[in-house]
Simulated scan of single mutants.
Amino acid sequence: MNLEATRRRLTEKQADTVDRLTRAAMEVLSREGFAGLTVRMVAAAAGVGTATAYTYFSSKEHLVAEMFWRRLAATPPPADEDSDSTTRVLAVLRQIAMLVADEPALAGAVTSALLGTDPDVAHLRYRIGSEIRKRLMDASGADADPEIVDHLELLYAGALVRAGMGYASYAEIAEQLEKSALRVLKG
């Protein structure tokens, strides 16, 4: 899969470098945690120079946000056109909530990274938010109410912040999110 990085369009060789950096970042993140992660460490683990890594990623927050964006973009929305819109919306929310559930180091890092002020992170936050909104609107069907989708987005964002802060596991948060979403969807 060749995803465009946030800072520029990539040649095949550049895309390979970005892929190596994001894979290495996961290894370093698992070992060092977000606090210990540095772009320099990731570059060394990927076998590229630090300056090269900074060509693609302005900060560790940008790198982690890119990792989450790539994971979201690579995960197709749940396909179930035969079910009702409520079931489809709940499936989308659960899928996104569980996207990093099996990797606690990444989950916590994503929460921290997406709250950062780096302009490249802000760009990714917009792309991530737009993709999630699109999935919720699509799942809602032709009669999608943008105000309801706004409420669902707030629920989702709050749920993931709570999970990222360690108040509950991602599986528990997904359950709570589903219950809350049902209340919004059913009025």
Rank of each mutant, 00 (worst) to 15 (best):
V48D: 04
D145M: 12
A73S: 10
L106V: 15
T55K: 08
T86M: 06
H151T: 12
L93I: 07
D80K: 14
F57D: 01
M98I: 09
L99Q: 04
D150M: 05
V89P: 01
L99W: 02
V89I: 15
F57L: 03
L152Y: 04
A109T: 09
L106M: 15
T55G: 10
M67A: 11
P78K: 09
L72E: 07
R135F: 04
G116H: 12
D82H: 13
A159T: 15
S112C: 06
V121R: 07
A122R: 15
D80C: 12
A109G: 14
F57I: 02
P104F: 07
A101K: 05
V64C: 02
L115K: 12
E153N: 05
L136P: 05
A122M: 10
A109K: 12
D84S: 05
A51C: 00
H62N: 13
R133V: 14
A79I: 14
S112N: 02
V100H: 07
E81W: 09
E66N: 08
E61R: 09
P104M: 09
P146Q: 11
L99S: 10
L63A: 09
E153V: 13
T55V: 06
H151G: 07
R127L: 15
P78Y: 03
A159D: 00
W69S: 03
T86S: 05
A65T: 08
Q95N: 10
A157Y: 04
T75N: 02
L72N: 02
A74R: 15
L99F: 02
V110I: 04
L152V: 04
S58Y: 03
A157S: 10
L63D: 10
D118G: 04
A73T: 01
G116F: 01
T55I: 03
V161W: 00
A79K: 13
A101E: 11
G47S: 00
A142L: 14
D145P: 09
A105N: 10
T111E: 09
D145R: 11
A65S: 13
A163T: 11
R135S: 01
E61K: 05
D150H: 08
E66F: 05
M137Y: 01
G141T: 12
A163W: 03
G141S: 09
A159F: 06
A142F: 03
L99C: 00
I132K: 07
H151Q: 15
E61P: 04
S59Y: 05
M137V: 15
R162L: 14
A144L: 11
L106F: 11
